[in-house]
């Protein structure tokens, strides 16, 4: 009998008949590889559990308390940072409305519409300026430079997507 079925028996941990066991025994006596396969299986099966040093649960309680404290601190600093950076931006955005706060409701509505128009016209002006700039740049820049620019943007986008995915994914096995 060839080597292959014996290796398959050993790897698949097949239940063998007494006759097959005898054949395997004979084969293993002459095949160093199958002997090693059998021996490693026996060692794997006889391997024991390794326990950590005493007091693991107590150490974990300390670790958990430290991590909870660190999380609370991080959230606290996050909130402070958000307030420091977010509030001035909010005030700047709302300043046209706030300046007319004591005025009548109609003045409020007028300032809201003016503010909306300002935002829309600013975006339009910026897009038109961008278009003009691109047309000018097309004339100046050779195609290979465009290729580099597009590749760089694609690379940055990919990096950004991967970063978002890594930070937001749930750990595997959970």
């Amino acid at each position: 009998m060839k080597h292959q079925p014996f290796e398959e028996w050993l790897l698949n941990e097949t239940s063998l008949t007494p006759e097959q066991k005898r054949e395997l025994d004979l084969h293993v006596r002459s095949c160093v590889y199958c002997s090693a396969l059998l021996e490693t299986e026996m060692v794997l099966r006889s391997a024991r559990m390794i326990a950590p040093a005493e007091g693991f649960a107590a150490r974990f309680r300390v670790y958990l308390a430290e991590r909870k404290l660190a999380d609370r601190r991080r959230r606290g600093w996050g909130a402070v940072l958000f307030l420091i950076t977010g509030l001035p931006v909010l005030f700047w955005l709302l300043s046209p409305l706030l300046s007319r706060f004591p005025a009548s409701p109609s003045a409020w509505i007028v300032s809201l519409v003016e503010w909306g128009i300002f935002i829309v016209t600013t975006v339009q002006a910026m897009s038109q300026a961008g278009e003009v700039l691109l047309k000018v740049l097309f004339g100046f820049m050779p195609p290979f430079v465009w290729l580099i620019v597009v590749s760089a943007f694609a690379g940055i986008s990919l990096l950004w997507s991967v970063s978002i995915w890594r930070f937001t994914r749930v750990p595997q096995g959970v």
Binding site: L24, V28, R29, Y33, A36, L37, L38, T40
Partner: peptide, 26 residues
């Protein structure tokens, strides 16, 4: 892979006449 490495590096001090197959696997 384990069996390959196991047969390549025999255990130091292991008796050559000691055969793994002497203990039944099944």
């Amino acid at each position: 892979a384990l069996a390959g490495m196991w047969q390549k590096e025999p255990m130091p001090g292991m008796q050559p006449e000691r055969r793994a197959y002497e203990t039944p696997a099944f």
